[in-house]
């Protein structure tokens, strides 16, 4: 394993020291591993809280700031944070208008956020709502399983809800909005290589030089199938086809086309993938009106990419375009 660290056991803690020093607009509670806006809580604004395992940077801390999240909880690498963290973070961002938990759909995250909400309800009278983000079409959606993973859709959900929260919308409105953006979004990912979890010290899965995984998760979970390595054009088809099969993205509204890097894939290749995906959307009559290209929801040092489509009506488009000032997304301010 080749990584810039001192001891895998301290990686997350020591990295948070750097986050704190490098970014004075953020605060870090090292005890509870909460990263939050320096100006939290914002009085009268619904507090937006998310988080999850570490190893997906810039998610989650890179989405904190005016126009997006108020705080996130950081877990160990690929391990959901714990209810105490979330309950404490809920208090930190409670500006009197309630707190919305934006939960990426993983069994651990959902259960821990559930327990946090129970804790918060027992300890305070803060109104808490939770919305689960589940956009990954690689996984079949079913009542009898853990359901779909939350992946790239978290970016438009958190951005758009963040903008709406700044406008002063209510907790219920924001929860509805989050559900709407999530319903409007679908993602699908692939890996050329496995990531290496520092505490394990070797790749999670072995992938021969001539093979790749289609339908992977963002925690080094192997994908739905392993296939021979293919061209970017063919890979684009393998990702776009299931997205369009799962939901209709044609019609009046345009889409956000988000080509996400898994961590070790250069921008040179991501932009090439963007062109391939856009060409397929052209053929399908789907119109990208906004773009995002880069490593936003990563899986440590994995090579690969995912594609997220999010349908944006006029309201959502305006909220997407609204000013935002986070480490990962910034415009208009």
């Amino acid at each position: 394993m080749k990584k810039l660290l001192n001891d895998p056991a301290n990686l997350v803690a020591e990295s948070l020291r750097g986050v704190e020093r490098a970014h004075p607009e953020l605060r870090v509670d090292h005890d509870q591993r909460i990263i939050y806006r320096a100006d939290a809580p914002v009085t009268g604004k619904v507090g937006l809280l998310s988080g999850g395992g570490s190893g997906h940077e810039p998610a989650h801390a890179g989405f904190i700031g005016p126009g997006m999240l108020d705080a996130v909880c950081a877990g160990e690498v690929f391990t959901s944070p714990v209810p105490d963290q979330m309950a404490e973070a809920t208090k930190k961002v409670d500006g009197g208008a309630g707190v919305l938990h934006l939960v990426w759909n993983y069994t651990g995250d959902v259960m821990n956020f559930d327990m946090a909400a129970e804790l918060a309800a027992a300890e305070t009278d803060t109104a808490v709502e939770a919305v689960v983000i589940n956009d990954d079409v690689a996984v079949e959606d079913s009542l009898f399983t853990a359901g779909r993973r939350g992946t790239g859709a978290a970016v438009p959900v958190e951005k758009i809800v963040g903008a709406a929260a700044e406008q002063g919308r209510s907790l219920t409105e924001l929860a509805d909005l989050a559900r709407r953006v999530n319903d409007n979004s679908r993602s699908m990912g692939m890996a050329l290589t496995s990531c290496t979890v520092p505490a394990k010290g070797s790749p999670t899965f072995d992938l021969p030089e001539n093979e790749m995984e289609i339908g992977i998760g963002i925690h080094g979970e192997p994908g739905r199938r392993r296939v021979p390595i293919a061209t970017a054009r063919e890979i684009a088809e393998m990702l776009v086809e299931p997205l369009l099969a799962d939901r209709d993205f044609t019609g009046g509204d345009g889409v956000l086309l988000f080509v996400n890097g898994m961590g070790a894939t250069p921008m040179l290749e991501l932009h090439l993938m963007y062109a391939e995906v856009a060409a397929l959307l052209d053929k399908a009559g789907v119109v990208p009106v906004r773009s995002l290209v880069g490593p936003y929801v990563t899986s440590l040092d994995m090579a690969g990419c995912s594609v997220t489509l999010a349908r944006l009506d006029d309201d959502l488009l305006r909220l997407w375009d609204a000013p935002v000032a986070t480490l990962a997304l910034r415009w208009g301010m």
Binding site: G108, N112, D114
Partner: peptide, 12 residues
Amino acid sequence: LVRSVGGASGPL
């Protein structure tokens, strides 16, 4: 366990 584990196994 709830405070220190996280993930699925912590709450369970």
